[in-house]
């Protein structure tokens, strides 16, 4: 079999032996209208158990990248592998290991009740009805939506629909979760709940999570790694959220505004050179500001 491994850039920075669950290298897709997305520059790699965010302006190719991962698009050149196989050619072999929530959840909800919709995937895979019930109950419980089980999905709010779609993905006990804009339409409490759930899935169950988002402030809370796409699909920046958001010029080139805390600390440093280094989470910011306040009061 053809070895899809790229000679460089596929090794986990901290764990050289970590399995690369998703690997994209210079994949190109040309749409019927002639527009081409070339996912090149850096390689995209998502290692097992890691949470990876994909950022980029509208039309940069985030969804195209996810569609390649899901085997819905076949690259005209370059390499895309998921669990070591090209997904467009061997999707049937790997699909039971992958959970998906697409951006338009309305089209993803097919069944007349929430319970039946969450059960759709397990039933298609031929699981026994008792196993299906266990999985559905667990998935509904994980997302705290057991009370919606008998409701008609189309009557739910946007946030509730998104949770139902996510429950449908979780019911498959996936090893890889692919999420397109999962925080869209969620209220702050639900967003925090989903963030905590994703962290638990990745840390306790080793689930690899690949998601696209415009919710920049969620990235430091959520992601172990982030990739930034420039217009046209070039993978321009890769690193931890701290590394990515420190690269102001690349972010500007991709029309991405840094998280609000990063902007605040940049502004502070512009006005007071002894102000703390930028941090990205509220807890870190509180600690840094408290230290700065103490230092300043001692100096006075």
């Amino acid at each position: 079999m053809h070895d899809h491994r790229h000679p460089y850039d596929h090794v986990h920075l901290d764990e050289p032996d970590a399995e690369a669950v998703v690997h994209i290298s210079c994949a190109r897709h040309t749409y019927e209208g002639g527009a081409s997305v070339h996912l090149c520059g850096l390689d995209f790699v998502a290692h097992r158990g890691r949470r990876v965010a994909i950022l980029g302006p509208n039309g940069a190719g985030k969804t195209t990248m996810l569609y390649h991962v899901l085997g819905l698009l076949r690259p005209s050149e370059g390499i895309v592998t998921v669990f070591g196989v090209p997904p467009a050619e061997r999707w049937l072999e790997i699909r039971h290991r992958i959970g998906v929530v697409l951006q338009n959840v309305d089209e993803q909800l097919l069944m007349p009740t929430v319970f039946d919709d969450v059960a759709f995937g397990p039933r298609q895979h031929g699981l026994s009805e008792s196993d299906v019930r266990d999985r559905v109950s667990r998935a509904l419980q994980e997302l705290a939506i057991e009370h919606l089980a008998d409701r008609v999905p189309h009557n739910l709010s946007g946030g509730e629909k998104r949770k139902v779609a996510l429950a449908g993905a979780l019911a498959m006990d996936p090893e890889l979760l692919v999420l397109d804009e999962p925080f869209e339409g969620l209220d702050p409490e639900s967003r925090a709940h989903v963030l905590a759930l994703l962290e638990r899935l990745s840390k306790e169950h080793g689930v690899t999570i690949v998601l696209t988002t415009h919710d920049i402030d969620a990235v430091p809370e959520f992601a172990d790694y982030a990739y930034v796409l420039a217009p046209g699909g070039t993978i321009a920046v890769r690193g931890t959220p701290e590394e990515v958001f420190a690269n102001a010029s690349a972010l500007r080139a991709s029309n991405i505004r840094p998280p609000i805390l990063a902007e605040l600390f940049e502004r502070l440093r512009g006005e007071a050179p002894d102000a703390p280094e930028p941090v990205l989470t509220v807890e870190d910011a509180a600690r840094a500001l408290e230290r700065w306040r103490r230092t300043a009061s001692r100096g006075a």
Binding site: L70, L72, L92, R95, E107, F120, R123, Q124, E129, G168
Partner: peptide, 22 residues
């Protein structure tokens, strides 16, 4: 467009030629 998307969604959610409905 919808037909293609619905088929994609079915395939992603496990459809393989026969819908299983109890």
């Amino acid at each position: 467009d919808l037909a293609q998307r619905e088929y994609d969604i079915l395939a992603l959610r496990g459809y393989s030629g026969r819908l299983a409905v109890p």
